[in-house]
Design a protein around this nucleic acid. Structure first.
Lengths: 244, 244
DNA sequence: AACGATCATATTATATGATAATATCATCTA
DNA sequence: TAGATGATATTATCATATAATATGATCGTT
């Protein structure tokens, strides 16, 4: 049942520890709602049988999920799912599981709200603090966006790189990491709505130009514009598509 | 050497698992710089002897640290500290360890930069989306801030509650969790600079009033004002104090 | 000498089984 | 009914053994 991925070193789903696999599967189940809040999940021995691994592996996996705030284990009581409120959504895994199981529309709205909070301010900050090298890198990212095949993976990568470079220019590690969360969201976006890329593409260069001119207000405005327009575009697309 | 905290149920340092203790101690060491980037930490057996616990406990702890991005373990190679860039700073533990070992001035600047990015936008958003109940709660938090003894713990708690309530009113789980990170920072702030509380207190009510009037622009401006002034106040205080 | 294959070794990865700690629940007693 | 007591299930910790695997050494070939 379990694929011993140890033996597949090729392309496929990255070669990983059994423990990591269990974390992933259990995590998905919990975030996906197989077990509801407050419910106790099967005990370690049962999970071990279910996943085809030893109790030690299950334990290590459960500990990791506990560190992510998903569950809490206590002797005799068992391990129970903590209220969603305590889930560490800023954990990249949790976020991924969440994005994967969320209704599309909710996902987009939530993502763009966060982007709207962070990115315009970040652009403003970057216009103040960016070094010449960072500005050059941003220009390069801009070029790569324009050069990439809109339907290929390079396009996504270039888009993510552009936004990441702005955060990088803020010289603030916390902001940078928040940006990486947004990056995860962007990847998910692209996978769902391919048409938004060509639409948003021309709005990127003005952001770069503003930052290069060291014009914070213009940078903020340009980023704000990009986000507003892109959000509206995707909203329309979702409307015409279906009503998931 | 190790205190079996299982036996002390009193006030003291919260009763916790051995595993959690090891996570905490090892985590602090790593973030604090006892081991530098790329360096391999002692193997599981040695760490076990050092902390006075079995290898299994060390393993579970190391797995958790790996989940936080601090280390990476591979067979034969051992467990090595990952580059700081990969550390999951958005993890509440990592952030705490980091704040504790950072120079004060850097800490404050970084914190206020993040707050300036998030909170004005959040205030704006809250003015749009807050429910009547949430506005009432915000008002209550405001009253409690004004009523609290400026030197007591209640003051900090009320301050954190106020800012948290604004994030809560945004109805966005990601923003809320980012806010909780700021909360951790606020606690640290208060512990270092007690004098900033009375200074910032009168700037809170205008924020509440703006949100109650559903005036997004005013809410943003009021929050911006609070942050700018408080940051300046603390900067001055640090200057006159010492040069850590 | 340079290079590649092979093997020894150290370390983590996984498995297994035993004991301790502890929260829940039923039962008993006042 | 309330409180104490004990049985029980489950996690917490420990100890030990085996497997997998990456590093570095050794050796042989060119």
């Amino acid at each position: 049942m379990i694929v011993r991925s140890t033996f597949l070193n090729e392309a496929g789903p990255v070669r990983r520890n059994l423990c990591a696999q269990v974390v992933d599967r259990l995590g998905k189940q919990i975030v996906g709602g197989t077990f509801s809040e407050g419910q106790t999940i099967p005990n370690e021995a049962v999970l071990g049988r279910e996943f085809g691994v030893s109790r030690s592996v299950v334990r290590e996996a459960v500990k990791q999920l506990a560190a992510k705030g998903l569950v809490e284990s206590r002797a005799k009581t068992g391990t129970r799912v903590r209220p969603r409120m305590f889930w560490n959504l800023l954990d990249i895994d949790v976020l991924g599981w969440r994005y994967a199981t969320m209704p599309r529309r909710d996902f987009f709205r939530s993502l763009f709200e966060v982007r709207t909070v962070i990115e315009p301010s970040a652009a403003e900050l970057a216009a103040t603090k960016a070094s010449d090298e960072e500005i050059a890198a941003l220009g390069k990212a801009c070029n790569e966006m324009e050069a990439a095949d809109p339907d290929g993976d390079d396009a996504i990568a270039a888009d993510v790189a552009f936004h990441r470079q702005i955060l990088l220019a803020c010289h603030n590690e916390l902001l940078l990491q928040m940006g990486m969360l947004i990056g995860v969201g962007l990847f998910t976006s692209h996978r769902i709505s391919t048409k938004s890329y060509p639409a948003s593409l021309p709005m990127h260069r003005p952001i770069f130009e503003a930052i290069r001119r060291r014009d914070p207000a213009a940078a903020r405005a340009a980023m704000q514009h990009l986000l507003t327009e892109t959000a509206a575009f995707i909203e329309r697309e979702l409307c015409s598509d279906d009503h998931t």
